[in-house]
Computed example of a mutant assay.
Amino acid sequence: MAPTIDIIRHAEAYHNLFGPHVRDPGITPIGGEQGCASLRKKYPHADDVIFIISSPMRRCIETALRGIAPLLDEGQGIVSLLPDLQEVNASPSGTGSPLSKLVDTYGENLEKETVPEDWYVKGPDTKNAPDPDKVEVRAWRARQSIRRATRIAARHHPDAHVVVVTHGEFAHWLTQDFAGITNNRNSAWWPAEFRSYRFADLQYTGDDDDATLVEIDTPESLERRENYLPAADTEERKALQKQIAVLHVQGHARMAEMWAGQELEEDA
Score class of each variant (00 low, 15 high):
I8Q: 00
P116D: 07
V249D: 03
L39Y: 00
Q203I: 14
H157F: 14
E215C: 09
L110P: 10
G26W: 00
V115G: 03
R237P: 05
A211R: 11
E12Y: 04
E236T: 06
M255W: 13
H248W: 08
L174I: 00
E193Q: 15
K134D: 02
A149S: 12
G35N: 04
L240T: 12
V137A: 15
F178K: 02
S221N: 14
S221D: 10
T205E: 10
D208C: 08
W259F: 10
K134C: 02
E266M: 09
D47Y: 07
Y197K: 11
N89M: 07
D159A: 14
R141G: 01
V49G: 08
P124L: 01
H157R: 15
K134S: 04
F51E: 08
V137S: 14
G35F: 00
F178N: 01
E226Q: 13
R143D: 02
F18P: 05
D48E: 14
E74Q: 12
I244K: 00
R148G: 12
V88E: 00
E193H: 11
I244W: 00
K122E: 03
D210I: 11
I68M: 02
G67L: 00
R9G: 05
W173V: 07
E74S: 13
T114A: 14
R155A: 15
N109M: 15
L174Q: 01
D133S: 14
L222G: 03
P98D: 03
H167P: 05
V79T: 04
R237F: 07
A129D: 05
E265F: 12
N16Y: 02
D73M: 14
D208L: 09
A192H: 00
T182E: 03
D125L: 08
G35Q: 01
K242C: 07
A153E: 10
P20S: 05
Q76N: 10
R9M: 07
I146V: 09
A253V: 06
R40C: 08
D267E: 07
K101D: 13
P3S: 07
I78P: 00
M258G: 11
P25G: 01
I216S: 07
W190G: 12
L110R: 12
D210V: 10
G26Y: 01
W190H: 13
R147S: 06
P132S: 02
N184E: 12
G35D: 01
N227L: 14
K134H: 03
I216E: 06
K42Q: 15
